[in-house]
Structures are given as structure tokens and as C-alpha cells.
Simulated assay, not measured.
Amino acid sequence: MLAGEKTPFEMLLVKLFAIVPAVALAAAVPLAWGWGLGWADVGLAVFFYTFTSLGVTVGFHRYLTHGAFKANRALRIALAMTGSMAMQGQIIGWVADHRRHHAYADREGDPHSPWLYGTSAGALAKGFWHAHMGWMFRRELTNAARFAPDLLGDPDIQRVNRWFPVLTAVTLLAPAVLGGLITWSWWGALTAFFWAGLVRVAALHHVTWSVNSICHMIGDRPFEARDKSANFWPLAILSMGESWHNSHHADPTCARHGVRRGQIDVSARLIRIFEQLGWATDVRWPRPERLARKLRDATVRAAE
């Protein structure tokens, strides 16, 4: 299941990626009061948040991890690069971790279950921290040869995997360059770097981590699943539909997570556009009979 340990350098990178953006986010509120934030910063932050978030949700997660659709080569590479710009780690490691999560969800072997330490208040507080971000500070590496052999054998994905440091630089510096050009000032470049670079990355990190932590602790569980995954509607828009987590765990390869009426799923809408353009094929959309069976089983079990 595991494959060695992270090197000291890899551990340092994990800490920097987790802590530095979070510190920037904590500083954002006082900085916003009265100066240092303009419409250019807001627009760039929203754009890069949406752009990189969809790279993770559509590319890393629904496509490369679960095979919810097939993509042509150009789209495959583009999704891999865009997801890498979310600064959530190299693509092969990300996919291996997530496949391992599904294989052992909320059981021994799950890399980030909040139920690892028990069900008491103290255990759940410790479990929440572990599931949210603490698990990344552990030295164990998921065995990619076991959980992501398809990606290890893909030259395009291997290339993007090696490009991670470059794509990290791009995702932080591109907002600064655009901010400087839009405002034609060094100050505009600096504020764009802060808001659309550091703060945007931190916000996206915590939304993604909340799916690991909150969406395995509280929320609605309308469908039968083998774990404690739950739908948590307040995160639906920010997570691009990922917080319909119980629906996802009930049918992991489905391209749409928000399967019920009124459940917003931006990622699924983007996949639909890719399908209409002919870039994505064999999309695994929800099947009414499967949803009905999962829902019926959950209802019966809740009544028992």
C-alpha cells in the first residue's frame, strides 16, 4: 500500500504549500480594510480560482482518478496541467492518494479519514485536523505502482508530473504579470500576486481539504455508501460540485456528483460542454435505475 517515505525536501515543500498560503489568507482580512484590493485583484482571483479548481475537479478527480469520461490527447494534457496549477501536489501522487482513499474509505488504510482516532469529541477534533491537512505532514507515500500504474505508463502524464515546479511558478506569477499589465503598475502586480496568487491558492486548498474532512463528518447521506461520506451543500459552488460527496461515493465513476434536483455541479456542466464539443466521449452520466436502487437501499437501512 505504501511506497517508502517522503524526503526531507518533499516534507519541506508540503509544509510550505500548506502553511504559507494559509498565513497569506489570515493576513487578507486586515489587508483588505481600506487598501490593497481592487477590482482587478478580485477578477483575477475569481478567474484563477475557477480555472485551477476545475483542473482538479474535472481533470485530476473525475477524469484521471475515476475515468468518468474519455478525453482526447489535447484535453488530457490541458486538464493535467491546469490541475497541477492548483498546487495540490504532483498529479501521479494526487491520483494515487485519492484512489487509495476510495479503496479504504474511512477504514484502516485511508490516508485522510477523520474517523481514524475514534468517535469521542477529542478524537473527532484530532481526526478533523488529520483529515483536513494533518495527513499531508506524514512521511508515508502511497504506492503509485499499485494505485496509479496507468499514469506511470503514460508519457504525457509523466511529463506533466515533472513540470510541477514550473507550473507552480506559473500559477503564482501569471496573476502578478496580468495585474501589472491591467493596472500598468508594480503595485497592481504585487496586489494581484497576493490576492490572485497566494490567497487564491490558500482558499482553494481549504475548500478541497474540507471535502476530505467536513464531507466525511457532517451532512446529508441520501445514498448507500460503504463509508461516512456526506453531501454538504454550503460548499457546492466553491468546490465546483465536489461537496455532493455522498452521491460521489455511492457511484464513484459517475461524471455528475450533484445528481438530485437543484444540486449545482459546475464540474459536470463543464464536462457536458467538452462532450458537446467532441473533446470528451463515453461520459458516464447518472443512470436513474442505479440512483433509485442506491436511494431505496439507503432508505430501507435508515428505517431498520
Rank of each mutant, 00 (worst) to 15 (best):
L295S: 13
G38P: 04
R256E: 04
F164K: 02
M1S: 10
R261S: 13
A144E: 13
F274W: 12
D282V: 10
T7C: 06
M1H: 14
R293Y: 02
Q88D: 05
R269K: 14
D156N: 11
K15T: 13
I77D: 00
P234A: 03
E224I: 09
H61K: 03
F17Q: 14
S213G: 12
L270Q: 08
R139E: 14
Y49A: 04
R76P: 01
A145P: 00
D220V: 11
A280P: 10
F60W: 11
A28V: 04
P288F: 07
I77P: 01
N72P: 09
A78C: 09
A27P: 02
A176M: 07
R139S: 12
T119Q: 14
I264Q: 06
A68H: 04
H206R: 01
V29K: 11
H102E: 04
L235Y: 05
I237H: 02
M217S: 08
G122N: 08
A145Q: 15
S53P: 00
W279L: 13
G59L: 05
T253G: 12
F128M: 02
V160W: 00
G262Y: 01
M240K: 02
T57Q: 00
G59I: 02
F69T: 11
A68F: 04
G59F: 08
M81S: 14
D106E: 12
